[in-house]
Every structure is written in C-alpha cells, then in structure tokens.
Computed example of a mutant assay.
Amino acid sequence: MAFMTTPDDIGPLRLSTADIPERDRFAIWREVYGRLIHQVEIEPLDGEPFCADLTLRLLPGLGVASGPCSAANYRSTPQLIAQSTDSIGLPILLSGFGVIQQCGRETKIGPGETVVSTTVDPGVWALPEGGSFTVIRIARDLIAPLVPDLDAAVGRPIPHDTDALRLLINYLSLFRDHATITDLAVQRVVTTHIVDLAALVIGARRDAAEVAGHRGMRAARLRAIKADVMENIGQLDFSVTAVAARHHVTPRHIHRLFESEGASFTEFVNGQKLARAYRMLVDWRYRANRISDIAYDAGFTDLSAFNRMFRRRYATTPSDVRNRSRKP
C-alpha cells in the first residue's frame, strides 16, 4: 500500500511500534512504513529504541500521516524514488525542530512551520531530537495547475504565522480522525479543500488563489470556527466577538461564513448549547445538578429561553428527558 496510490478512502489507520514485538520492531517498521508506505529509509539517531505512533489517512491523490516519533533521519533514495508517485510534500512540524535537505538546499523549521518538498528528488528529512509532525503528500497533477513554477518552490520554508498553513493544520486534524468517507462526491470535496489550502500555502496563481480561497480556505476557516464554538461555548466570555478575535477575522466575516451554508452563527451556537445540555441531562454524572445549573453550564443565561428552545428542538421538556434517562 504505497502512500499515494489508493483509489479509495483508507483510514484512519493507526500504526504504532508498540504493537510490534520489540525484537523485530524497527526492522518491521522500516520495511512496512518506511519502504512500503512512505518510500524512505529510516535511520534512528539517538541510540535509544526507535518508537513511533502514527495515524495514516489516504484519499485518491492525497496522503496524510501524523503523530510523534523518536529522533530519526528519513532518506529518499533513488531506489525508493523509483517506487514512489510524483507528489509534492508538506512536512509540517508540530513539536521539536527539523531539517530538510533537498535539491541542494538545507532548510530548518520549527513548530507550526513546513517546507515544500518532492517525492522525486533525493533528500533527507531529519528530526534530530524527535517530535510530532504531520506529513501531507499531494499528487503533482492535482496541485501543479494551481501553483506557477512549482519546482522553484521546493525548499521554500513556510512560517508558522501563515494564515493558510494554520487553517490547513486545523483541517487536517479534523480529517485525520474522521470516519472513513465512502461517498465519492464527499471524497472529492475533501481532497479539493486540502489541495486548495496547500496551494495557498505554497503560493497559488492569482486566479487560482481566488478560487482556492473561496473553496478550501473558507471551508477550513468555517470548520475551525465551529470547533472553537464547541470547545468554548460554556465560557462566560463566549461571544462572536471573542471567536472572531481568536481567528483574526471580523464578526461580520463569521456571520457571512455561516450564511453561505444557509444558516446563522446564532442558530449553530444555540444548537450546540442545546446538544450539550441534552448530553448532561442524560449523563448520570450530572444527576445531582439542577436543570438550571445545567442550562447555565451549557452557555444559556436566560432559563426561560433555554426551556422554550429545548421544547422546540426536542419536542419535550428538560425534566422529561432527565426522568426518562433514570428509568431502568
């Protein structure tokens, strides 16, 4: 199963050295992940037993591997390049520091940064102290039409404060853990969004950037904002202004993103609050909590409004939901 040759969505697959007998651990990892999947030679650096715990996700023309590993060099050799597909790589460092040598250039990157690489040129990607990373590979024929002089970008470092890179990292984290996508149309949409964001990271043509910004960047930003809402909805200072500040956009921009889906920010927020309250009502850990406390913890400040919206959403009352959950 090469990293870029699958015709369908595969994953998420978890690959861990902890699942391999210690005696054969590195030999099997080097052969299966290194040579068969990633087409690289792996060379441990620190003298300690090699360990890695990666999640692999494959779509047509697209591969993503993510997770921590110990210090190592990843070397692409002419022999393994012959087995690889022609792809553009973005190794994104999440912790530690890395050095990549390719096409006569040496580039150092830190957390949240990446560098443009290829699978058809010999090179070395080093993690001198180990760390965590996400590697994305995109078939050249998918991204080349969007980026002028793609080969000239090889070795170019991308700083951590690049908007498109931050959104790409967020989108990939959601995609990595999502259940297998069986719908071909959805597979194409996800692939398009990731390719669009990668093109913006590398440097898309002006016309392509407009299209990519409209598709991939908007979708990734909306996903990031939804994740922010779900994580922070119970905070006392939660507001569209606070969310906008965290994502470096205006509140109006957030409202427009939701309007493009035929909904509103307020509707999404209220839906998430209600879902949170419902989960707490049926959870035995919150049986001692008053319903009013649950409403406030879910983010509501008006108890009558909570009861009214709850009945409209679930066609029952919070008390009835709690009472039914207590029955054997």
Rank of each mutant, 00 (worst) to 15 (best):
R57Q: 08
G123W: 11
L80Y: 01
A220T: 04
S84I: 01
N307I: 05
V120W: 07
V99Y: 06
T17R: 04
D53G: 00
L167D: 14
P318M: 05
S95T: 14
A52E: 06
E31P: 00
A208P: 02
R308F: 07
S95M: 03
I28Y: 13
R223E: 13
P122F: 02
T134G: 03
S319L: 15
V135E: 13
L257I: 08
V64A: 02
M4P: 01
A71C: 08
R313L: 06
F133D: 02
L127M: 15
V282W: 08
A295Y: 00
A18N: 13
D8M: 09
R285T: 05
T250K: 07
D163H: 07
F268Q: 13
R140I: 09
Y286S: 08
A139K: 12
H214A: 12
F300M: 04
G98R: 07
A209Q: 09
K273C: 10
I10R: 03
N270F: 08
N323S: 13
R285I: 04
V190M: 14
L13A: 00
Y314I: 05
Y171V: 01
R256A: 11
T182M: 03
L257A: 12
T77S: 14
L184M: 15
V321T: 15
A27V: 11
S87C: 13
A209P: 07
L80M: 09
D46L: 15
N323G: 00
D196G: 01
A198Y: 10
I88F: 00
I136T: 11
D177W: 03
H178E: 10
R311Y: 05
G131V: 06
P44E: 13
A164P: 13
K273E: 07
F50T: 02
P251L: 07
T114W: 10
S239C: 07
D293N: 09
A295Q: 02
D9R: 01
H247W: 14
D24G: 08
L222I: 10
A27C: 05
T77H: 01
P318T: 01
C103E: 10
D207R: 12
L146F: 09
A52D: 03
M280N: 06
A275I: 00
G234T: 09
V189D: 12
A219H: 00
V186Q: 14
Y286L: 01
G34L: 09
P49V: 06
L80T: 03
T5I: 04
Q187D: 08
A277K: 01
R218K: 12
H193R: 13
A71Y: 10
G104D: 10
L281S: 01
F97Y: 10
G262S: 05
V116Q: 03
I100W: 06
R25H: 03
I194A: 10
Q39S: 12
K327C: 02
D121Q: 12
L15G: 02
R206S: 11
L146K: 09
T162G: 14
G47F: 08
Y286V: 07
T6R: 11
D121T: 00
V120A: 05
A263Y: 03
R156N: 08
G155A: 06
F268W: 12
A153E: 12
H255R: 04
G130A: 03
C51I: 06
H38R: 02
R285M: 04
F310S: 01
R205Q: 10
